[in-house]
Structures are given as structure tokens and as C-alpha cells.
Design a protein around this nucleic acid. Structure first.
Length: 672
DNA sequence: CCGCCCGTAAACAGAT
DNA sequence: GATCTGTTTACGGGCG
């Protein structure tokens, strides 16, 4: 791991001359930056100076809020790098440099493999936040310039008039400034709110300050509160320990932080006078021990945060009193606690699912995660995901990755996000039929479109051996292959066939012999196999082509033909969690999370009316999947044409080493 | 229930 | 003799 945050921070520190040794580096830096950007060094007019000071203070407060969101993960990781080493470096890099990372830089980071999936996610989110921040700063700068121009104009033009006039003018100016300040603040608040709603703030894995309650309060209060009321009937009772633990568990699970839970980012600076929030602000040092101890995860904004309670408690002691009286240990609170645990479990599950997804995505991009993987033996994607009937105990370790990831990536990253978002996911349908034969092109187009996916994810292709063999032969220049060449095609094209060689090779031979469509042709140097297309077309009578119900045979039998999204979808479905996609970046539909929890708790799946969205091609892959899952859309045999944008290189990627001895991997390797 | 398809396992034989 | 190649049989699951 590279440790770039150190020098970066130091340079910033040394540059700060204005006595701001409070450790608030980012704030200082940002302010310094803004100052150096457009600020006239000296404004002599007293009133104007005052106004400017006010403006600056307001800006400072506003910026503080903005910067805070970056600080939370960045600085904290920096300060407690002993606790969060994994998050420290890249995040700090991103945070210390108030710039949006260029695609090249991002790619470099990816290629250097310094990012864990969590870090990557954090980074992306922070980049978005940063971009917003930059836009805001531009706006502020303009505003500042405008203000300064006005100030200077006032200064120069106001020399001659009477003092009274001047004062009046100053007052007017002040009012105007204040209005502008207010406007800016409001704008900033709006941005913050937007960020928050989009989950960019509170869903950051690196942000240790937003446990579930914060989510509930800050994000979708009505949803969650109502959910609680629906589930629990009403509210009351318990000592809060259980709930507390659940939330803490969640937070620690998510971000490995021991920081006490705190309410979500406070928009209103006034609200920061509430003791809890001070942890997030530069005032933290000044917070007394007593105040700190009064930061109860169930208490915030003068309200009891026990789910469904919302009782107003004037102070901490009254809250404690309320807690002990209303939320004492009894059946109801125990039940609530259980529900809360379920909520937390679902969130954790969701997290692990997203981690898996990220892993698969990164695998697809040939990016090896630096995240430590405890399991030495490569776990099949399918086995780890699809077979997750016991997904609740699926550990993040069982993440799918490709141990046989080719050593020479063919710059797949340059293909951009469209590779992963649209194609692989859409085309590799959840309830994938085994494309055999008759469906004309699907197999070739599917393989071509998902080439990278199949090459790197150990997912069984949803085709029969016969179809695959035929495809291999037809892809060859002379439409003929030796058995060994067929083997090589399998291992080259599909990561899945780099294991259990004895099994699938036997199957290949079996199929070659069994099906009349495969014709063995004696050659000078041995024998080659060709395809008798007529026989091949004869193989399957017409009945299949019009029968889409075959599509389930894989999922229901061995569940090995379901590629990534299918697996995830299945896994999510099994756990009644709809996928909210973080891959779509920007709108992780939190309402769906709430509805997911509701479903989980009620044991009812009723998504059909969730958004009433039709199956427009513009929907996200996950939405599409969800749609499929919910409505059991019959799969059109031609459905794989979809909004595909992945056009992987038609030529075969040389990222597979045919000399490598894939076939000698022990068969029992996956017998775990 | 039957027949078909498919995947898997395995026995066997011939060639290298 | 070991391995590869090719054939054949058997079995079980899914599905119509």
C-alpha cells in the first residue's frame, strides 16, 4: 500500500500559516484555497469589512458542513490510521486533494490495485461529492467576486457623499450581502440535502457516524418510522441495550469504527449546539467528557430515537429516565429489538451482497482487490452466491473472484463502465435458459457480448456442452477443431472450465461421441471434429423454440448456469431484498431499502406496484432484473439483444495462457 | 408416469 | 505403463 496521505497532508500543514493548528487541515486548506483564489487582501471600509467577515463566517460554517462530509472518512482515517488502515490511503489521497480525480488517475488507482472494494466505493462517492463541491465553490467564488466588486465600488463611490448617506448605503449593502449569504447557504443546504438523499453521505462505508438510526432519522424517517409502527404495532419499552447493540454492530460491521453513533450530518449549524453533533465538528475537542458520555445513540435532537418512539426529552437525564421507564425490558421491547436485529441483519446482508457485486465487477475488470481474503481456495462465484440459501451467514470472504485471473489484461478497463452496467448484467439473465442450438445466434452473441465476464468470472455459461462445442468449432477458421483445441477453447473462453477438468472434459468427449451432429474427420495429423449443422438443427424438434419455460431448468436444478446478476438476484430474492444498485451510482433508492425491510419483516413481497415502471430500456440493469424477478416476465428468446453496449473485442483476448496447466487442478478443489 | 434432454460418472478400448 | 482420445452405458434431475 502506498502511503501518500502523509506527504500530502504535511505539505498542506506547512502551508497553513494562519495559526490554525487545530488539526482541521481540510477546512484550513479549503479556506486558504478560497482565499487565494479571489479575495482582495485588504478591505478597509469598516462596515464592508464587517459584512465581509460575516460573509466569511457564514461561508466558513457552510463550508465546514460541506467539507465535513469529506473529512469524516478522510481525516478520521488519517487520524486513526491505526484503526482504519485499509481506508486511509486512497481516501486520504482523494480527500486531501480537492480535485476530482481524472479518469486516468482512477484507472491508475485501479490498476495499482490499491483499493479495496470499500475504498473504491468510498472514492467514487467522494468524487461525486467533490464534484458537487467544486461546483459550489465556483458559485461561491463568483459570489465572492461579486461582493467584492460591490464593496470596492462602494468604497470608491462612497467617498464623497455624506456620512449618513454612506452609512445608509452600507446598511443596504449589508442587507444585500446577508441576503446573498442566505441564498448561498440555502443553496448549499440544498446540495447537502441532495447528497444526503442520494445516499452519498450517509451510505459511505467509510463514514462511521451514521448508524441505522441516523439513517432512519436522516434519510427516510417516515418510511422507517411507519415500518416500525407497522411491525411493532406501537412503541415503547426496553433498556435500549439490544437496539443499541444492533446499531453498533451495524456500524462496526460496516465501517469498522468504534466511534459512538451520532446523528446524521447536521444541516443547520444551530443544531450543532446539540452535544452529539459536536463530534463531527471542530468543537469536538471542547466537548466535555460528560457531554461525550451523554451522546447516546438512542438520543438525539432532544428526541428519543427508540424506533417508533420519538418521545421528546428535554435533556439527557430525562431521556435516561424515559428510556428506563418506557423502554424497559419486556416482551414488546424485546420484539422490537428482534426486529431491529433483523433490520440490521438485512442491512449487513445488503452490504455483503453489494460487496460481492463489487467484487464481481472488479473481477470483470481484471482488478484484483487488495482486500484480504481469508479463504485460500477460490470460491466459485456460483457456489458462493447462487447457493446462498444460507446467505445469511455468507461471509464477505466468500467473495467471488478469479484466482486464475489472466496475468495480461487486455485493457478491459478502457471499455468503460458500460461494460459492466449494461451488458453483462442484462444479457446474462437471471433465469437463464441453456441456450441450445435452435436459438440461432444467441450463443455466439452472448459469448461475444459477455466474453470478458465469462473469462474472468467462474460462472458456468448457460449453454449445453453441445452448443459450446459447436460454437468452438464454428469459431475456428476452418470450422474444425481437434479435441485438444476444443478443450483450449473452453478454458480460454470460460473461467469456469479452468477447474474440474476431468469432469467437463469427459462431458465434452461424451457429447462429441453422443451427438450425431459432431462428425469426426480423420486428418493427416490425427482427427478433427466438425459440426453437421443439419444434424445439429435436427437435434431439437420445434417444440422447444416456442416454449420459454425451459428457462428455469438450470436455476432449479444445479443453479450453476446463473451468472452474476442472476446469482445476486436469486440471493437477494431469497432474502427478500431487492437490489438497490450502487452501481448505478447516485440513486440507491433508499425507499426500496425501506420497502425491502418491510417485506422482510412482513414476509410479503409486493413489488409489483413499487414504482409502476415499465420495462423501458433505459432502466437500470438491476431494475430490469428486479422487474423480471417480480413479474416473472417470460423471457423472449431474443431478449439478449437488449440495450447492449458491450462490444468486446471480437478477437480473442490473449489473456489466457494456453500453456498453463489448468486441467490439472485437483477435482476435489471445490468439494468444500 | 413416461419420455426426453442434459450433465455426470465411469468402464472400456485403441492410439500415442 | 501412462496418458490421451473416443465410445458406450448408467444414472439422476428437470421438465413437458
Amino acid at each position: 500500500m502506498m502511503q501518500e496521505s502523509g506527504p500530502e497532508t504535511k505539505s498542506n500543514d506547512s502551508a497553513v500559516q494562519n495559526g490554525g493548528s487545530s488539526g482541521n487541515h481540510l477546512l484550513e486548506c479549503t479556506l486558504r484555497e478560497s482565499r487565494s483564489n479571489g479575495e482582495t487582501p485588504s478591505l478597509e471600509a469598516g462596515a464592508a469589512e464587517l459584512a465581509h467577515l460575516q460573509q466569511h463566517q457564514a461561508l466558513q460554517v457552510a463550508r465546514q458542513l460541506l467539507i465535513h462530509q469529506q473529512q469524516v472518512s478522510g481525516v478520521k482515517a488519517h487520524k486513526r490510521n491505526d484503526k482504519q488502515p485499509s481506508l486511509q490511503v486512497p481516501v486520504s489521497v482523494a480527500m486531501m486533494t480537492p480535485q476530482v480525480i481524472t479518469p486516468q488517475q482512477m484507472q491508475q488507482i485501479l490498476q495499482q490495485q490499491v483499493l479495496t472494494p470499500q475504498q473504491l466505493q468510498v472514492l467514487i462517492q467522494q468524487q461525486q461529492a467533490l464534484m458537487l463541491h467544486q461546483q459550489l465553490q465556483e458559485f461561491y467564488k463568483k459570489q465572492q467576486d461579486q461582493l467584492q466588486i460591490q464593496l470596492i465600488q462602494q468604497q470608491h463611490a462612497g467617498k464623497q457623499p455624506k456620512e449618513q448617506q454612506q452609512q445608509q448605503q452600507v446598511t443596504t449593502q449589508q442587507l444585500a450581502f446577508q441576503q446573498q449569504l442566505l441564498q448561498m447557504q440555502q443553496l448549499q443546504q440544498q446540495h447537502l440535502m441532495t447528497l444526503q438523499r442520494q445516499g452519498l453521505l450517509s451510505l459511505q462505508p467509510g463514514q462511521p457516524t451514521l448508524p441505522l438510526q441516523s439513517l432512519a432519522q436522516g434519510m427516510i424517517p417516515t418510511e422507517l418510522q411507519q415500518l416500525w409502527k407497522e411491525v411493532t404495532g406501537s412503541h415503547t419499552v426496553d433498556d435500549g441495550a439490544c437496539n443499541n447493540h444492533s446499531s453498533l454492530d451495524l456500524s462496526t460491521t460496516c465501517v469498522s469504527s468504534t466511534a459512538p453513533p451520532k446523528p446524521s450530518l447536521l444541516i443547520n449549524p444551530q443544531a450543532s449546539t446539540n452535544g452529539q453533533a459536536s463530534v463531527l465538528t471542530p468543537k469536538r475537542e471542547s466537548m466535555s467528557h460528560e457531554e461525550y458520555m451523554q451522546s447516546h445513540p438512542l438520543y438525539g435532537h432532544g428526541v428519543c430515537k427508540w424506533p417508533g418512539c420519538e418521545a421528546v426529552c428535554e435533556d439527557y437525564s430525562s431521556f435516561i429516565k424515559h428510556l428506563n421507564s418506557e423502554h424497559a425490558l419486556d416482551d414488546r421491547s424485546t420484539a422490537q429489538c428482534r426486529v431491529q436485529m433483523q433490520v440490521v441483519q438485512q442491512l449487513e446482508l445488503q452490504l455483503s451482497k453489494d460487496k460481492e457485486r463489487l467484487q464481481a465487477m472488479m473481477s470483470h475488470l481484471h482488478v484484483k482487490s487488495t482486500e484480504p481474503k481469508a479463504s485460500p481456495q477460490p470460491l466459485n462465484l456460483v457456489s458462493s452466491v447462487t447457493l446462498s440459501k444460507t446467505a445469511s451467514e455468507s461471509s464477505p470472504q466468500s467473495l467471488p473472484h478469479t484466482p486464475t485471473t489472466p496475468t495480461t489484461p487486455l485493457t478491459p478497463i478502457t471499455q468503460g463502465p458500460s461494460v459492466i452496467t449494461t451488458t453483462s448484467i442484462h444479457n446474462v439473465g437471471p433465469i437463464r435458459r441453456r441456450y441450445s442450438d435452435k436459438y440461432n445466434v444467441p450463443i455466439s452473441s452472448d459469448i461475444a457480448q459477455n466474453q470478458e465476464f465469462y473469462k474472468n468470472a467462474e460462472v458456468r455459461p448457460p449453454f449445453t456442452y453441445a452448443s459450446l462445442i459447436r460454437q468452438a468449432i464454428l469459431e475456428s477458421p476452418e470450422k474444425q477443431l481437434t479435441l485438444n483445441e476444443i478443450y483450449n477453447w473452453f478454458t480460454r473462453m470460460f473461467a469456469y472450465f479452468r477447474r474440474n477438468a476431468a469432469t467437463w472434459k469427459n462431458a465434452v468427449r461424451h457429447n462429441l461421441s453422443l451427438h450425431k451432429c459432431f462428425v469426426r474427420v480423420e486428418n493427416v495429423k490425427g482427427a478433427v471434429w466438425t459440426v453437421d449443422e443439419i444434424e445439429f438443427q435436427k437435434r431439437r424438434p420445434q417444440k422447444i423454440s416456442g416454449n420459454p419455460s425451459l428457462i428455469k431448468n438450470i436455476q432449479t436444478s444445479h443453479a450453476y448456469c446463473t451468472p452474476l446478476n442472476a446469482a445476486l438476484q436469486a440471493s437477494m430474492a431469497e432474502n427478500s431484498i431487492p437490489l438497490y444498485t450502487t452501481a448505478s451510482m447516485g440513486n440507491p433508492a433508499l425507499t426500496s431499502l425501506a420497502s425491502a425491510m418491510r417485506e422482510e419483516l412482513n414476509g410479503v413481497i409486493d413489488h409489483a406496484t413499487s414504482n409502476g415502471s415499465d420495462s423501458s430500456p433505459g432502466r437500470s440493469p438491476m431494475q430490469a432484473m428486479h422487474h423480471v424477478h417480480v413479474k416473472e416476465e417470460p423471457l423472449d428468446p431474443d431478449d439478449n439483444e437488449g440495450p447492449l453496449s458491450l462490444v468486446t473485442t471480437a478477437n480473442q483476448s490473449p489473456d489466457f495462457d494456453p500453456d498453463r496447466d489448468y486441467e490439472d487442478e485437483p477435482v476435489n478443489e471445490d468439494m468444500d
